Simulated assay, not measured.
Amino acid sequence: MNISFRYDRKQVIQALRYHFFTKPEIRLLVIGINLFTIVAAILLYFKRVTPFTFLIFSTLWMLVMLVVWQIMPNSIYKRSETFRDSFLMHLDDTGVVLQTGRGTQSWHWNRFSKYLETPFFFHLYFTPNSFFLLPKDAIGDSGDQQLVRELLRRHIGGK
């Protein structure tokens, strides 16, 4: 199957957010900050803590969400040349071949550790922090997307 695509900025930013929130350390950090903020709000209601304490936890919550939701995805998008290229990708039972104006790269399926499907992309992971995004809208109709899903499931496995 041949797929030609360019990346859409908003979709890539959303995909990077999904990537960050799949990380256990990020999820634990956000859950912990949320719990502390809720506890601080309850204690503030019962006048066990000062409003300043609640303000600190609320500010911390806002900063974490700002960093994870906006700053990290946008900084990665801006630094990466990959998101500005045009691609031609070929998928078959032997692996993946990716072509750009700069060259060609091929990977056998065993190079991928897992894949993750999100609303706009298939994330093809090499390592826990290294992945390639395959846009779903470039694949075509739902029948072709199902073929890609089956190919990924058969050769990589995933979530």
Rank of each mutant, 00 (worst) to 15 (best):
I3G: 03
S4P: 00
R6C: 13
Y7N: 02
D8G: 07
Q11M: 07
Y18F: 09
F20Y: 02
F20W: 02
T22R: 07
K23Q: 14
R27E: 04
L28D: 08
F36N: 06
V39R: 05
A40S: 14
A41M: 04
K47G: 02
T50N: 08
P51D: 08
F52N: 10
I56Y: 10
F57Q: 11
S58L: 15
S58K: 06
T59D: 04
L60T: 14
W61A: 15
M62A: 15
L63M: 13
M65C: 10
L66A: 15
V68K: 01
M72P: 05
M72Q: 06
P73C: 03
S75H: 01
S80Y: 05
E81G: 14
E81F: 13
E81R: 13
F83Q: 01
D85E: 10
D85H: 08
S86M: 05
F87W: 00
L88T: 05
T94F: 00
L98E: 01
R102D: 02
R102V: 02
T104P: 01
S106G: 01
R111N: 04
S113A: 09
K114M: 11
Y115I: 03
L116W: 06
F120I: 04
F121W: 02
F126V: 04
N129W: 01
F131L: 08
L134C: 11
P135E: 09
K136H: 09
A138T: 12
A138H: 11
A138F: 13
A138C: 13
I139E: 03
G140I: 12
G143K: 14
G143Q: 14
R149F: 14
G157Q: 11
G157V: 11
